[in-house]
């Protein structure tokens, strides 16, 4: 356990080295937040409420999503693929720890840094510029923590599998493009799922991608109460377990394929 704690700290420090990258990333995230916020402000002049979202919700949604992109590494995260390409993976696999959990621990360290560096600043700017507010209900704060922890686990489970495809397909750019598209669209990153067409929305909500972005946001905005809240957290937990288990299967298949040259 202590080992994984150290790995998480290592993941935190490793990400924290790139301070200027984090700063400029946060600036870019915030700028896009502004653009999207103005779009919603103009759209909501034609209607007061859509799918249970009012303008204030949409503005909060905008700045939370901009912050979450880095938190769950929605777009680019290929450190495992790089170790496969360089051969480093062989020595990583022979270390006395659980390979998947070791990466998961590091990913939590990374996510914690991104939460501080990339998620909070855009939101604070949004609070100042657009008057978005934080929830006052303590129950929401109690629920948002496990929801984010699970969102990181689900997204890690997904990214772990994507990275392992490098064992079969050394050039991961095609996979990267496709996964970016799927995750961006179905996570409810661009448009709140509540505004999606009926019929499509329910299906997308059940997919693992909604557990990465849409559910934590709905928890934060207080859209999920009581039984719905518990069910949403359960859905996140379900996908975390399924994707992590699937990742272990893919890993064992990859190990059958791995041939280490030299010695």
């Amino acid at each position: 356990m202590r080992l994984y704690w150290e790995l998480a700290r290592y993941g935190f420090r490793r990400t924290a080295i790139y301070r200027s990258a984090a700063l400029s990333g946060a600036i870019t995230n915030t700028f896009f937040g502004f653009l999207r916020a103005y779009t919603f402000i103009a759209l909501f002049q034609t209607r007061g409420e859509v799918g249970g979202y009012v303008l204030a919700d949409a503005l909060a949604f905008t700045f939370i999503t901009q912050g979450m992109a880095a938190l769950i590494a929605l777009w680019a995260w290929w450190p495992i693929a790089e170790t496969v390409q360089t051969g480093q993976v062989a020595s990583d696999l022979s270390r006395p720890y659980d390979y998947q959990f070791a990466w998961l621990a590091q990913d939590y360290g990374r996510a914690l840094f991104q939460l501080v560096a990339r998620s909070v600043p855009p939101f604070v700017v949004g609070m100042i510029a657009f008057g978005i507010t934080v929830p006052t209900d303590p129950l929401i704060w109690l629920a948002i923590i496990p929801s984010i922890v699970l969102a990181v686990a689900v997204s890690f489970g997904w990214r772990f599998i994507l990275n392992l495809t490098t064992f079969w397909w050394i050039d991961q750019r095609g996979i990267a493009n496709t996964s970016m598209l799927v995750a961006t669209l179905f996570s409810g990153f661009l448009v709140p799922l509540a505004m999606w067409p009926d019929g499509v929305r329910e299906v997308v909500y059940a997919l693992p991608f909604a557990s990465m972005v849409a559910i934590p946001i709905d928890v934060f905005l207080g859209k999920l109460q009581g039984v719905d809240l518990v069910a949403a957290l359960a859905l996140q937990a379900f996908w975390a377990v399924v994707l992590l288990a699937l990742g272990r299967l893919v890993l064992s298949a990859a190990l059958h394929k791995l041939v280490v040259q030299g010695g």
Binding site: T39, T46, R47, D171, R173, G174, N177, T184, L190
Partner: peptide, 30 residues
């Protein structure tokens, strides 16, 4: 590789357009 990536680029940028269409299902104009 070229075809896969070009199609990927096409789709990745098309996502934003899909967003636009979704938004206009709910809002008449901007």
């Amino acid at each position: 590789s070229f075809v896969v990536q070009a199609v990927g680029q096409f789709l990745a940028t098309f996502v934003d357009f899909i967003t636009l269409v979704f938004l206009f299902q709910r809002f008449p104009s901007i």
